[in-house]
């Protein structure tokens, strides 16, 4: 088995709200990403998945907890080490319109990182830009153009080329295709898969679309209100979802098949996540959970391994699924 590249231990990110309240966006999250692996992070909007990605790439400073990259603690670094690390960790953003500087040409955008890290001579940098453009399915002629001249899918390709420019080992993909059209989404997904194979990249793939995350990821973590409630391999999560929230998420995805869709029994969750500002005594999912019980009032339990490689945070799971083998 390949070694761990990124290790997140007890990560917390709190945002003070100014009125004395604290928003616990990420509350004690731990997981690991192995070399060459794609780890998917899913959950509803506001569950903290983007904050996790941004804290790992250190766009935010962690409130508490540790981030290990290649065995080294990188939670708090000085400026110099920070810069060195930025070369290994890159990010692809959700909005291809907002994440490219409209006043820079594509060449300037892609080469900026290489120049900051003084990687190549001027001539080499230019050739490298051309090479990257071709790699992501654009061409040389695009180098002198500005972002507004491109479609959403093409812009996202520029964003990917920029992330690849400094030869990173790890890329955080924050909903990279949710702003794109269906037919273009598949193009970008295929590109991400191809690049991973060629360059042996590791991805943290953040999205709310479980069917896409399942297709791309090796392992998946399901987040709810700042905590991970279930972590396991993609195939296992789809076949044997244990947490009531995971089951509801899976069942909420509409299937592109009218016959199946008509016959399907759907678990419709009532309500929406409660406010992450208030600290709840009971389990975070309590108010919406179809299987709540007395034991859930004690709070959201820590993740524990209920089956090999399958981690779950649910007090009532034993009674419901594990003991009686009531898998789907």
């Amino acid at each position: 088995m390949s070694k761990n590249l990124v290790e997140v231990r007890g990560l917390k990110k709190y945002f003070p709200l100014g009125d004395g309240n604290i928003l616990k966006a990420v509350d004690d999250v731990s997981f690991t990403i192995r070399e060459g692996e794609t780890f998917g992070l899913v959950g509803e909007s506001g569950c903290g998945k983007t904050t996790v990605g941004r804290t790992i790439t250190r766009l935010y400073t962690a409130t508490d907890g540790q981030i290990l990259f290649d065995g080294k603690d990188v939670t708090h670094l000085n400026k110099k080490d920070s810069k060195a690390l930025a070369k290994d960790m890159q990010m692809i953003f959700q909005d291809p319109y907002a994440s490219l500087d409209p006043r820079m040409t594509v060449e300037m955008i892609i080469s900026e990182g290489m120049k900051i890290h003084k990687m190549y001579s001027e001539e080499e940098t230019r050739n490298r830009v051309y090479e990257l453009l071709e790699l992501v399915g654009l061409n040389k002629e695009h180098a002198t153009r500005y972002p507004h001249e491109f479609s959403g899918g093409q812009r996202q390709r520029v964003g990917i080329a920029r992330a690849l420019a400094v030869n990173p080992r790890f890329i955080v993909c924050d909903e990279p295709i949710s702003a794109l059209d269906v037919s273009v989404q598949a193009q970008v997904v295929n590109l991400l898969k191809k690049l991973q194979k060629e360059k042996h990249l590791s991805y943290l793939f953040i999205a709310h679309d479980l069917s896409l995350v399942k297709y791309l990821s090796d392992r998946i973590g399901v987040m709810y209100m700042g905590s991970l409630v279930e972590v396991t391999e993609a195939e296992e999560l789809y076949k044997n979802p244990l947490h009531p929230y995971t089951r509801a998420l899976l069942s909420a995805i509409p299937v592109a098949d009218p016959k199946e869709e008509n016959e399907r029994h759907r678990i419709v969750l009532s309500g929406e996540p409660s406010n992450p500002i208030n600290t709840l005594a009971e389990c975070k999912f309590y108010s919406r959970c179809p299987h709540k019980a007395e034991c859930c009032k004690a709070g959201l339990p820590a993740l524990r391994e209920v089956k090999k490689g399958h981690f779950l945070a649910c007090s009532n799971a034993d009674a419901l699924y594990v003991d009686n083998q009531g898998f789907l």
């Binding site: 509803e44 909007s45 709310h208 479980l210 998420l249 995805i253 509409p254 759907r266 419709v268 929406e272």
Partner: peptide
């Protein structure tokens, strides 16, 4: 979100 989408549908 998908869960809310299911409710609205």
């Amino acid at each position: 979100d998908v869960t809310v989408q299911a409710q609205i549908l």
